[in-house]
Design a protein around this nucleic acid. Structure first.
Length: 288
DNA sequence: CAGTGGCCCTGTCTGC
DNA sequence: TGCAGACAGGGCCACT
């Protein structure tokens, strides 16, 4: 389940191994992987072949590679997506969806995705050439690791909301890059229940929460960043180098490391929320 | 408009 | 043993 740190690790790999190379041909093996592409597979092939990928950028969980004609190859990994840099003679992965070959005849870029929530598309840019983003990313907020993320504006916007704090953390138009795992981890760190109404949060609580989000993401990034220095640009949420340090996520009935109380799991938005009943007491007034 | 909930997708695990 | 159902969940879209 790639969240921001995992996506950033992939971005660094792409920057190193793919930027500067020219696409020779594109092979789409599953239509759903390009469902957002205008013109479908044919549209992607026509728009990408002959283009040079110039860099690798990211906002939240979106990744993109600007091309030399002012568009961008946009990628979202969804739940199970991987971008792999593989030798041409490596056997096809079981869930290989899209393959890019390059004019230098070197390693291919492969999009592999078991559950097909992710996808690739070629998109026009919105905004300036320097800090512009692909059009579908225009509504995505900056993420907490972005130097231009505005803490005060975030606190103000959050306190104007009328919803539960975890819902707000998962809303990518308010703040991006936070998924279910890191939301639970950050809320545990600061002792906030997921259904705490956003309008009751103080500025100081919001500041502590942002610090917790950055701490959780930064720690994951550090661990991921140390192990990616290879040709294998790989993100697999289940491979385990992040989950070893999780305090609440996936730890139902296991003791809270702070107080020993068994961690609870509640249904939340058709998924799960993990929290400590003692460190994160349910507020009298709760927002789902 | 803001807030909420359903749906997409497939592999793994649990319980009857 | 076999099978049905729960579960994983980001983002889009429809609905209130």
């Amino acid at each position: 389940m790639p969240e921001l740190p995992e996506v950033e690790v992939v971005r660094r790999g792409l920057e190193r191994w793919v930027a500067g190379r020219t696409v020779a041909d594109v092979e789409v093996l599953h239509p759903r992987a390009v469902r957002r592409q205008p013109g479908g597979a044919a549209g992607l092939v026509a728009g990408l072949e002959g283009r040079t990928l110039q860099a690798a950028r990211r906002r939240g969980k979106y990744l993109w590679l600007p091309t030399d004609d002012g568009e961008a190859l946009l990628a979202h990994l969804g739940m199970s997506g991987q971008l792999l840099v593989q030798p041409p003679d490596a056997p096809d992965e079981t869930h290989l969806r899209v393959r890019l070959r390059f004019t230098d005849g070197g390693r291919e870029l492969r999009f592999v995705d078991q559950r097909t929530f992710g996808g690739l598309s070629l998109e026009p840019m919105s905004g300036g050439t320097e800090d512009g983003v692909p059009l579908p990313v225009a509504h995505i907020a900056r993420d907490p690791l972005d130097a231009r993320f505005d803490d005060a504006a975030f606190a103000a916007a959050l306190r104007r909301r009328h919803t539960g704090v975890k819902r707000a953390l998962l809303d990518q138009s308010l703040v991006s890059g936070i998924g279910n795992i890191y939301a639970d981890e950050a809320l545990w760190q600061v002792g906030l229940h997921y259904a705490r109404p956003t309008e009751t949060l103080t500025r100081a609580q919001v500041a502590r929460m942002l610090a917790a989000v950055r701490s959780v993401m930064g720690a994951a990034l550090e661990r991921g960043g140390t192990s990616f220095d290879s040709l294998y640009v790989n993100v697999n949420g289940e491979s385990g180098y992040f989950e070893r340090s999780l305090e609440v996520y996936g730890r139902r009935d296991l003791p809270c490391s702070r107080c020993g109380t068994p961690i609870r799991r509640d249904p939340f938005m058709n998924r799960s929320s993990y929290s400590c009943p003692r460190c994160q007491p349910r507020p009298r007034r709760a927002h789902w």
